[in-house]
Design a protein around this nucleic acid. Sequence first.
DNA 1: AGTGGGTGCTGAAAGGTTTCAAGAGCGTCC
DNA 2: GGACGCTCTTGAAACCTTTCAGCACCCACT
Lengths: 356, 356
Amino acid sequence: MDDAETRPERIRRRRAPKPHAAGVKAVAAAAGVSLGTVSNVLNRPEVVSPLTRAKVEAAMASLGFVRNESARQLRAGSSRILAYLMLDAGNPFFTDVAKGVEEAAQAAGLSVFLCNSSEDADREAAYLDLLEQQRVQGVLITPIDQNSSRLRKLPSRGTPIVVVDRALDESEHCSVAVNDVLGGELAISHLLELGHERIAYVGGPSTLGQVVDRRDGARRALRTAGRPATDLIELTTGALTVAEGRGAGQRLAGLPADRRPTAAFCANDLLALGLLQQCVSLGLRVPEDLAIVGYDDIEFAEAAAVPLTSVRQPRQLLGRTAAELLLDESSNPDHEHQRVTFTPELVVRTSTRGTL
Amino acid sequence: MDDAETRPERIRRRRAPKPHAAGVKAVAAAAGVSLGTVSNVLNRPEVVSPLTRAKVEAAMASLGFVRNESARQLRAGSSRILAYLMLDAGNPFFTDVAKGVEEAAQAAGLSVFLCNSSEDADREAAYLDLLEQQRVQGVLITPIDQNSSRLRKLPSRGTPIVVVDRALDESEHCSVAVNDVLGGELAISHLLELGHERIAYVGGPSTLGQVVDRRDGARRALRTAGRPATDLIELTTGALTVAEGRGAGQRLAGLPADRRPTAAFCANDLLALGLLQQCVSLGLRVPEDLAIVGYDDIEFAEAAAVPLTSVRQPRQLLGRTAAELLLDESSNPDHEHQRVTFTPELVVRTSTRGTL
DNA sequence: AGTGGGTGCTGAAAGGTTTCAAGAGCGTCC
DNA sequence: GGACGCTCTTGAAACCTTTCAGCACCCACT
């Protein structure tokens, strides 16, 4: 995370003179046509005769005309942009989701702006305000707190929202999620089958729905196996990052061997990778001393020091579906809000199953 | 990269009625004041008396007023937004750079929109057009092709640009870079010191300046050591991704042992991680059979199957500096374009130095 | 009582585009 | 030869906010 120490060289140069923009009016004058015609060339090229169109296009090129999107949007009332407000841009899981969003948006001729809340509620709120003011076509969001009143306000004022990676019962918007409770169950059942008794759950903060649901799934698996849910040893983290994972690893490795869990289920892969790294460097063997299960199955999970067992989610599909729901909402007058839920899948690797 | 196969459940709900927006005019009427006063409450709260301000604010709240940013921008002429057009949002290096950008922007009270070109020239061009039309305050960009004419056009029309992670001689804009030639030299010198003779360079496409510069540095190190630059065995990839790295690993491991390089220098860590993973799974030992050096020192490099030797760059600092240059350009009338160059640093780990 | 200087509010103009009803030009048909 | 229909273009209104000169009012001072 920290940047290297460096001594930059700086080279100075002169500044270019400030230019000024040409608008439709100037183009119309240069081409000898009216304002309306220029606008037609821009928006409905087929209605203007090839000759005039050529003249106008030439004028635009020679003046370096750039359409003023603010004015366009003000008058036309609609934006060609869609935003994805991510929980953490540093987590490859979300960038993969974003990839799916971009794919669907591009197919519909829209562009995507990515915003990063970094698990910070204030930044999330600020971005939501900003996007609403920008009158974007719609907002895809993986929220920090799904009960935020702001999340309900936007749709009621005309900015459609789709919640990604969280399923809400609110009737104000669509949501696309993966069954996190089931994911937690899969992870823990797997560990129980392998004979683990003392199992830790590493995750936090518990304002994040994902963290809570996966824990609940873990508890359910324990109950199903006839053991009290309190058997789950909880290690709470401040965020879902590699650094926090390392911290948890430190705490975990510090426990006396007879009380230390023999397996850890982490709320996401970043935590798992940090935990793995720290534990290995402190001398624990994975999976012999400590089995680890992650969540998300990001690309780096497979390439880790010990390839990571993880719960896989359909990342791009999640993003694509969410974007499609949003597009439907803003184009289809008969749109009905939907809650789509996908099913996760356990991918077993060396970090739990040691012996191949 | 591929999404898991899943059978989603879809739950349908009724749709909410379409709302309609209230503008300053409605607020003014509701509060019994003039348009101008509402605008003052919004932009210069200190000039309006506490009583009127309260009335206006109450009216805004009860009407659910949301400022129309398009209209604001059209009239006021300035945007509060800054964009970072990334080369690859899936590469943690760039999301770290973005973090630095956001930090600096937030300090200046601006917001950042992230755009992702995914190493696709068409998407890059489309985003540049879009951002110019949006009249953003400025654009930070890690370009695919630094000779693109569009890169020169934007500043000449009033949208300031700062090039990130590339140093250009163009006088039209600032740039912030890390000395990639030096980085390549560091990597290869290290490998030469370890006694390697057959060294591969894995990278591509060569439209990317980073790929070319790092290769040039590698060649220079060879020449310095008294060996012809052609000794460098080049494995060209189609992109800087883990998947391409795996492909390169496949090709490399397929070579007969007596002609196979004993060391590989990869143009970035994603390639290196893919290469590492593939080679290990094909039975090569790292670093005994193949030493690997990456580039960027992303967070996952240290947690890899074999901790990766890599060339570290000051990621966040890069972003922060770029944003600061941009802010200076758009606020300081005496701004001079600058070319800032940072110095990279080699971080040696197990993937080259095996014996700790 | 008259003057001067604040303070707080108003009203109209301006910003660049899109939209749309209406107009111009021209060929065709009866 | 006149009416009609067609294609292409025009001009003005509208979108919502910000800006700014100016106005009204009040207080203090002479």
